[in-house]
């Protein structure tokens, strides 16, 4: 095999890994959209918020320390000692559930029966609000997040791939980040758990019922409000997982919330209501943008990853508006 060919494979592999990350965020979108028809723009900020909170608990930060100091002239920052990873994660999950409850109580409940586009715009407002809260609570500085997931290049893989090259070429092996491999594994695990949950538990059945038909679900005694809280909580947990992965990779900071924007074209490809769609859509976008940058990028100035996903989604929309796995929309008069 020539180094060029091996390089291409490396690009594809890395694209797949990035794609998994996109899928993780898209998954949160799909969950909420299926259960409530809400296109939750704030999903990315939820990931940021969850990651910020986790780091805050780990390092023992005092919430709103900056604000408190500013108002009362005090000098508080930390509780003195941090927390065990596991406890911190559990506490963060609790925070995300509390958040879900608050969102339902304060926002969604008042927007029932509004048009989807109004709800969409409300979640944009929610995203801004949460970003402000997250920054005020934990500070806007770049934080490192480490929950003990291995990271860095895999030397084993580098050694293995180095032997693949044909005679007479120089090749240094493929680089693949262990963190990405772990992320892929965790994503698979998460999807499996979610699938089992929705297939085999009572709550899961209720979720699917609501996704099929709100009205009908109400008539058989399912409480829409508690379903929404549950769904937003699950989406919060998914956001936490995505936040941990992205945060471990590139640090916890504002740009993390921008991955939400990348998840949007993923959804368009995969369809808004399909979990497998979100995963495959993520992979296509991940591989597509990396390959495009690798092949075409150098010819037109690079940084095509900024827009490739959207333009791909745009073309896709023209031919298959319901996505790869979405149901066909039949309009009735």
């Amino acid at each position: 095999m020539t180094p060029d060919f091996l390089n291409t494979i490396e690009v594809i592999l890395n694209g797949l890994m990035t794609g998994v990350m996109y899928s993780l965020v898209a998954l949160g979108f799909v969950l909420i959209f299926k259960a409530s028809g809400i296109f939750n723009y704030a999903q990315g900020v939820m990931a940021l918020f969850a990651a910020l909170t986790l780091v805050g608990f780990q390092t023992g930060q005092i919430p709103f320390a900056h604000l408190v100091n500013q108002i009362f002239g005090t000098q508080v920052h930390h509780w003195g000692s941090g927390m065990n990873n596991l406890i911190a994660i559990l506490l963060t999950i609790l925070v995300m559930i509390l958040f879900a409850w608050l969102v339902e109580k304060l926002v969604l409940q008042h927007l029932v029966n509004q048009e989807p586009i109004i709800l969409f715009m409300a979640t944009i407002g929610l995203a801004f609000f949460m970003e402000g809260v997250g920054d005020l609570m934990w500070g806007a500085d770049l934080k490192t997040l480490d929950v003990g997931i291995p990271s860095g290049g895999s030397f084993w893989w580098e050694d293995v791939t180095r032997t693949w090259v044909s005679e007479g070429y120089e090749y240094y092996g493929m680089y693949i980040d262990l963190l990405d491999v772990w992320a892929a594994g965790i994503a698979v695990l998460l999807v499996t758990i979610l699938t089992l949950f929705s297939q085999y538990t009572k709550t899961g059945r209720a979720l699917r019922a609501v996704a099929d038909d709100h009205q009908a679900a109400l008539t058989v005694g399912i409480s829409l409000r508690s379903i929404w809280v549950i769904v937003w909580s699950i989406a919060g947990v998914v956001a936490l997982v995505a936040g941990i992965m992205w945060g471990s990779k590139s640090g916890v900071q504002f740009s993390l919330s921008l991955i939400a924007l990348k998840a949007l074209p993923v959804l368009i490809l995969g369809g808004f209501t399909s979990i497998p769609g979100a995963i495959i859509g993520g992979l296509i976008i991940g591989v597509g943008e990396k390959l495009f940058e690798f092949w075409v990028g150098p010819l037109i100035g690079g940084a095509t990853e900024n827009w490739f996903a959207y333009v791909l989604a745009l073309f896709f929309l023209m031919f298959r508006p319901q996505g790869l796995f979405g149901e066909r929309i039949i309009e009735r008069v």
Partner: peptide, 27 residues
């Protein structure tokens, strides 16, 4: 005399909150 950082975050919160408020109360 607050720090500009904190005020910027506060403004984000207010803007986001206002958007939700208006969409709910007075679309």
């Amino acid at each position: 005399g607050w720090s500009p950082d904190i005020v910027a975050h506060l403004i984000l919160m207010i803007v986001g909150g206002l958007i939700m408020f208006f969409l709910i109360v007075e679309p």
